[in-house]
Design a protein around this nucleic acid. Sequence first.
DNA 1: CTTCTTATTGAAAATGGTTTCCATTATCAA
DNA 2: TTGATAATGGAAACCATTTTCAATAAGAAG
Lengths: 156, 156
Amino acid sequence: MPGRRRMMSPGWGGKFRGCGYRMTVPRQAIMDVLSGTDKHLSAEDIYMKVHKMSPDVGLTTVYRTLELLTQMGLVVKFDFGDGRARYELTEGPKSEHHHHLICASCKRIIEYTDFIDEEMEFLKRAEKGLSKKYNFDIKNHIIQFYGLCDKCKNKK
Amino acid sequence: MPGRRRMMSPGWGGKFRGCGYRMTVPRQAIMDVLSGTDKHLSAEDIYMKVHKMSPDVGLTTVYRTLELLTQMGLVVKFDFGDGRARYELTEGPKSEHHHHLICASCKRIIEYTDFIDEEMEFLKRAEKGLSKKYNFDIKNHIIQFYGLCDKCKNKK
DNA sequence: CTTCTTATTGAAAATGGTTTCCATTATCAA
DNA sequence: TTGATAATGGAAACCATTTTCAATAAGAAG
Ligand SMILES: [Mn+2]
Ligand SMILES: [Mn+2]
Ligand SMILES: [Zn+2]
Ligand SMILES: [Zn+2]
């Protein structure tokens, strides 16, 4: 029965190949992990999850792939101030668009999805204007609020 | 001629003391550097500038002070992806409110001050709503756009 | 001004996330 | 199937940031 070779997955392979890169086992495994979570994973988090299914994928490759994905605009790299970078897939049915409140004291992260409509309104205009004025191809964005969480607010 | 002791500077001392900290020579020197520039300096950048006026201030103290200032909300810590953190004074007559476009490929930074009015509109509402909903005391924010700069856009 | 408590500091060493090296392997166009 | 070369993994190197700890200085009290 021909014509029914793997037609699964949205086809990350195409994304990679389209950018001139090859699709490999490690890369596929990493994409699987990223698209299967709604948390902001660190490189090591991802490495450990990948390791369960593909024990021979190295941490170095995870870092390399993450850098690649970030450049391709498929992943956003965050710095929440805990000493390690964290990554989130840009387009994911798993997680809805959100941003973060970061406690400057205890580093606690609060995700919120409020005000996304108003944000869209603002961002649409800003992105259009900025990409034209600076001839910059905007792929994605980060919005983070810093301050004190309720716990830290009420201390000494 | 009494009564004319140093009345210079907005008085960072008060800011520190008000938070229960002491005002010291190193801290004053660091504040002088921060309030005298409109660039995003790294810890080492600041250390070198401080070193010119106060040669005995150590790099460790610069890091410690920066962490303190970040927690106090007087400084914002940025990660532009070049391996070192960068810092900007929140309130500064020197620099006007701005945000950044970051090239995901070459890491070039473009500062922009456009759309600040629309942003203010959006932020005012978001901050008010978020701080109430999450009981979070928002001190400041970061907005960054990622993508490809004109140079990197036209490659390969 | 002097004293006393303790927050702050500087130098050196340690830390640890991320990058670099390089020999080996795997992808995919031909 | 083959060949050019992109990709990989393990170990070593990197290097920004943190930790340690004895010495110092800020500032409240007297
Ligand atoms: Mn998130
Ligand atoms: Mn800036
Ligand atoms: Zn907190
Ligand atoms: Zn660029």
